[in-house]
């Protein structure tokens, strides 16, 4: 009889444990926006991607938008960030507020003289790890040409640990047209850096394939 009671208590505890456990199937997306050179004029394209993300992400998911400037490893560069409420109606209101904030930023983009992609990535990894989401994605809206301010150290390995990195709208520079190998080498170098750090790498230049960004 005592044994039976013990089994019952253990079973109940296990059941309660399994009941209270929240499933970590939330998603987190961090989008880096290049603000150097001609990219300030391509905000419309970035806007389309943000709309797509807002439509795809749902309750419990997180989204952040940050700019890449001279020194991107800073919270100041985060334009907007949000973790959507668990209630659908509240999440919809948050989406509206997020998009309004992004829209406001789009009206007054300042051109940056340097492009600190590594700093932006480090900031993104920090944010994504803090969200505790199971599916983490970094979107880089840039030509991937890094230009760092003198004195800044960025040539070290980065731990991506399962984060998916997607480069969007990687435009070809004038020099790339002269020697296309530069473009390919640049992409290959970033790919190697991400994969060496335990992440996965992808390039999407055709926005018709945006459907592959999120699960």
């Amino acid at each position: 009889m005592l044994k039976l009671r013990l089994i019952f208590v253990v079973f109940t505890l296990v059941l309660l444990q399994s009941c209270t456990e929240a499933k970590m199937d939330s998603r987190a997306v961090y989008m880096l926006l290049d603000t150097s050179g001609t990219y300030t004029k391509q905000f419309d394209k970035a806007d389309g991607i943000i709309k797509y993300l807002l439509a795809k992400l749902s309750t419990g998911d997180s989204l952040a938008l940050a700019r890449i400037d001279s020194g991107s490893f800073s919270e100041k560069d985060i334009i907007a960030k949000i973790t959507f409420d668990l209630r659908p109606s509240k999440a919809n209101a948050q989406k509206r507020a997020f998009y309004t904030a992004v829209n406001e930023y789009g009206k007054d983009i300042r051109n940056s003289s340097y492009t600190d992609i590594t700093g932006g990535l480090l900031q993104a990894i920090e944010y994504l790890n803090e969200t505790g989401a199971s599916d983490k994605t970094i979107l880089i809206f840039s030509d991937l040409k890094e230009e760092i301010k003198e004195g800044h150290v960025r040539d070290f390995p980065i731990a991506f640990n399962g984060i998916k990195v997607i480069a969007l709208n990687v435009t070809k520079l004038k020099s790339d047209n002269v020697d296309p190998r530069e473009y390919m080498d640049r992409i290959a170098a970033w790919k190697k850096r991400v994969e060496d750090g335990g992440g996965s790498w992808e390039v999407i230049n055709d926005f018709d394939h945006l459907g592959d960004i999120l699960k």
Binding site: K23, D25, T59, A91
Partner: peptide, 9 residues
């Protein structure tokens, strides 16, 4: 979902 949340299991 509005009452008990969409992400609790």
């Amino acid at each position: 979902k509005e009452m008990v949340g969409a992400h609790s299991y």
